Amino acid sequence: MDTAAFVEAVEDGNRTELSRLGSSKSLYALTGGEMDADHIYAVVAALAGAQADRFETWADEADGELADALSAAAETERDRASEAAGETDESVEGGLFDGLDDCDGAVERAGGFVAATIVTKKLQEQLVGFFVGQADPTTAQTFRSYGDELGERREAALAALEAVCADESDREVAVEAAGGVITAAYEVYVDRLEAMGVNPKPVC
């Protein structure tokens, strides 16, 4: 299983979850139904901060390409969390990336790292759409640039994954870990919508 096959396996195994996380309901769920710029920035701050915390810890415990990729991602997310927090006085509940806590060891963490990047890319696309809808092209472009960075991050994460996987068994472990991260994120999405009386299933 090469890196392309790995991504295909993760996306095929979690197609419904990723489709719904990439729908217009995702930001609605994460903001608690408060679809304004202040709450959107609060979401960005919460999600970026959570990833920065986790990736920093993992980087300290990793070696080689995985440590380098995690350190770069942590720095980017820490900066993004700080910038977003400076735009709002609101706060939102986190938890979308709690599935990363279940990843143990280099192989699982590399798989979880890729999965977090895939989920974040889905949300980034919705952020662009939100600010386009708000007639704020400057901020929309900022989040488009974030998408470019996420593409580069995924390539670095996949290269790191290839470096830590010794055999096909390791790759299967990484696929399972990635699926766990996506499933945990999807469960947050479902729980938040159901708590507001919204059906999470239809994609829109």
Rank of each mutant, 00 (worst) to 15 (best):
Glu149Asn: 12
Gly105Val: 11
Ser26Asp: 08
Glu75Val: 08
Thr117Trp: 01
Arg80His: 01
Asp53Trp: 05
Val43Lys: 05
Leu96Ile: 09
Ser145Met: 04
Gln141Trp: 08
Phe143Cys: 04
Ala106Thr: 10
Ala84Phe: 00
Thr88Lys: 00
Asp36Ser: 14
Arg80Pro: 00
Gln126Trp: 06
Val114Glu: 01
Thr88Ser: 03
Val128Lys: 08
Arg144Asp: 03
Ile40Asp: 03
Leu96Gln: 09
Glu77Arg: 05
Phe143Ala: 03
Glu61Met: 13
Ala69Asp: 03
Ile40Pro: 03
Glu56Asp: 13
Tyr41Phe: 15
Thr117Leu: 10
Ala115Leu: 04
Gln126Gly: 04
Thr57Gln: 13
Phe131Met: 04
Ala52Ser: 07
Ala73Val: 02
Gly22Val: 10
Tyr146Phe: 13
Asp63Phe: 15
Asp36Glu: 14
Glu83Asp: 06
Thr88Ala: 03
Phe97Val: 07
Glu87Tyr: 02
Gly33Gln: 11
Ile118Asn: 03
Glu56Arg: 15
Glu56His: 13
Asp136Gln: 10
Arg109Ile: 10
Ala52Thr: 05
Ser24His: 15
Tyr41Trp: 15
Glu87Cys: 00
Ser82Ile: 06
His39Pro: 00
Lys121Tyr: 08
Phe55Asn: 05
Asp36Gly: 12
Gly147Glu: 06
Asp148Pro: 05
Ala48Leu: 07
Gly64Ser: 12
Arg144Glu: 01
Gln51Leu: 09
Ser71Asp: 11
Ser23Leu: 10
Gly133Lys: 09
Ala29Ser: 11
Ser24Thr: 15
Lys25Ser: 12
Thr139Ser: 06
Phe97Gly: 10
Gly111His: 07
Gly33Ala: 09
Gln126Tyr: 04
Phe55Cys: 04
Ala45Pro: 04
Arg144Thr: 02
Asp36Gln: 13
Thr57Ala: 14
Ala135Cys: 07
Tyr146Leu: 05
Thr139Leu: 09
Tyr28Lys: 12
Glu125Ala: 13
Glu90His: 11
Phe97Arg: 07
Glu75Tyr: 09
Gln124His: 08
Glu125Phe: 10
Leu96Val: 12
Asp68His: 10
Gln141Glu: 08
Phe97Tyr: 14
Ala110Ile: 09
Asp102Met: 13
Ala73Arg: 03
Gln126Phe: 08
Asp63Trp: 14
Ala135Lys: 13
Lys122Val: 02
Asp104Asn: 15
Ala42Thr: 06
Lys25His: 11
Arg80Ala: 01
Glu93Val: 11
Asp60Ala: 15
Arg144Phe: 04
Ala115Pro: 05
Ser71Thr: 09
Glu149Val: 12
Thr88His: 01
Leu123Ala: 01
Gly99Gln: 06
Ala140Phe: 06
Leu127Phe: 11
Pro137Phe: 12
Asp101Cys: 05
Val119Tyr: 02
Asp101Arg: 12
Ser23Ile: 08
Gly111Lys: 07
Glu87Ile: 00
Ala73Cys: 01
Val128Pro: 09
Phe130Arg: 07
Tyr146Lys: 03
Thr138Glu: 15
Lys121Gly: 11
Ala72Val: 05
Leu123Asn: 02
Glu108Asp: 14
Val107His: 09
Ala50Lys: 10
Arg54Phe: 13
